[in-house]
Nucleic acid binder design. Structure first.
Lengths: 246, 246
DNA sequence: CGGGGCCATATTGTACACAATCCAGACAAA
DNA sequence: TTTGTCTGGATTGTGTACAATATGGCCCCG
């Protein structure tokens, strides 16, 4: 499974984190903090605080917060503001369950649509991942480098599925901080298995066999879920509202 | 299929369209206009215009617009603003394809989890729909009354699936104006078939047979897609950017 | 007569000030 | 001790002014 560092931000603002565009800067800064686990779940994010820290006014900060709420990073209550969202065991299970459906669907469709160039790209990404994985056996801190090519691999499969609504939908269940940085939890065997899964997915797609591709993708995601559960969520607790608070 | 008048708004603001809360009023007003097809696809929505018409300032209007962008009603470009989103044939097909996956998944899971009370509710809703359908045979304009119980039926199934992330995800592919008000396109036979589907889904769930329930749900949505295609999308054209413009 | 660059205008983006609302703690009464 | 109320401070919600940017028409040039 795996599926870290989500691709571009799903909505507008095409990666314009330049100097101008206070809203984009605010969004990037807050998202960065969320991905770094700067704040514990349930922590209240104060607009004025963030605005001062980032160096913009409250208005673009509000825009950024609303966006992060819609992406599932934060939860919002009227007149109270935003809190860092936590994920209960149940919700994490639900999240992986949906990934199971959506990514296997993507693989099934991709098998009927991907072309030779796409297959080649997937295998190139496999080469990269395997090279990194070999080094990472000794240096566990290198494992985060796997996330970029792994993410690219999954993204290529999703693109090949040729369903324009699918990518943002999958992003909504993979952008969660809980899912990110999953490679760290993998042991050597699990990394090897993950690499094999990628190769097998590429093979199934090359063979044009959608059911095969979907089945391997399901295995891939199941394996990731097990690894995540074993390692603990790192974030099971919630705010005062309990696991499903809103 | 069908699935009109999406339930509550997916995110925060629990239906507070009261007198206060300018942002909620703005959201409700604009959404209402979108559902009424007040503006053609590609129409640019001006913040100042809307603010004046609704009687609030631009700030809450901006909030409302951002929200509608995230819900797929509008598309947004930096420094340009919001346009009414159109749906190409491809996108509508993609949309139904995802509903096929998600709602059949919901039905499959619901079969293992729904209780007797839930089944009873579903059958009650079937009763209601059949009563309305009988009258609507002569008065086609009554068909819109089917949308509320139909929506409730689907919602009950989704709730029974007990995946807290599923409902907002399905909402994102059913809130689109293209999908709403689908019953109008149905002829008498199609309405009858739809009613039969509902009864059969309830039976499959009562039998605890997830595969059966999922299969009927797929049939149900396929049928809806065919009816929609036959009737035309009512909104195939797009703005100047072509069908996938952004 | 057609095409490219420039400027006026319209519209969005940002900042800030004020109003509305909520929360924590103190205090009083049972 | 417990509960209810009230008040002060803090935080979000809204309105408005101004800055930044894009669009469309005009003029100039080829």
């Amino acid at each position: 499974m795996l599926r870290p560092s989500a691709h571009k931000d799903p909505e507008g603002a095409e990666e314009e984190v330049k100097h101008g565009h206070a809203a984009s800067r605010a969004y990037a800064a807050i998202r960065e903090g969320l991905l770094r686990d700067t704040w514990a779940s349930g922590t209240r994010l104060l607009e004025a605080d963030l605005a001062a820290r980032i160096g913009v006014s409250r208005t673009p900060v509000r825009d950024a917060l609303r966006r992060l709420v819609n992406e599932g990073f934060l939860e919002y209550s009227a007149n109270i503001g935003c809190r860092v969202r936590g994920w209960s065991e149940d919700e994490i299970a639900s999240l992986f369950d949906l990934r199971l459906e959506l990514e296997s669907y993507a693989a099934r469709r991709a098998a009927e649509r991907i072309d030779a160039a796409g297959i080649a790209e997937l295998n190139t990404l496999c080469d990269q991942m395997e090279a990194i994985a070999t080094e990472a056996l000794d240096a566990p801190n290198l494992r985060d480098d796997l996330t970029a090519p792994n993410d690219a691999f999954h993204m290529r499969v999703i693109e090949a599925a040729a369903n324009p609504l699918l990518a943002p939908m999958i992003a909504s269940v993979t952008a969660a901080p809980v899912v990110l940085r999953t490679f760290r939890r993998y042991d050597a065997d699990e990394i090897a298995r993950s690499m094999n899964h990628h190769r097998e997915i590429a093979a199934a797609l090359a063979a044009g066999n959608g059911e095969w591709a979907a089945a391997v993708m399901r295995s891939h995601i199941h394996a990731g879920y097990v690894a995540m559960r074993r390692g603990g969520t790192g974030d099971a607790a919630r705010g005062p509202n309990g696991p499903h608070g809103r």
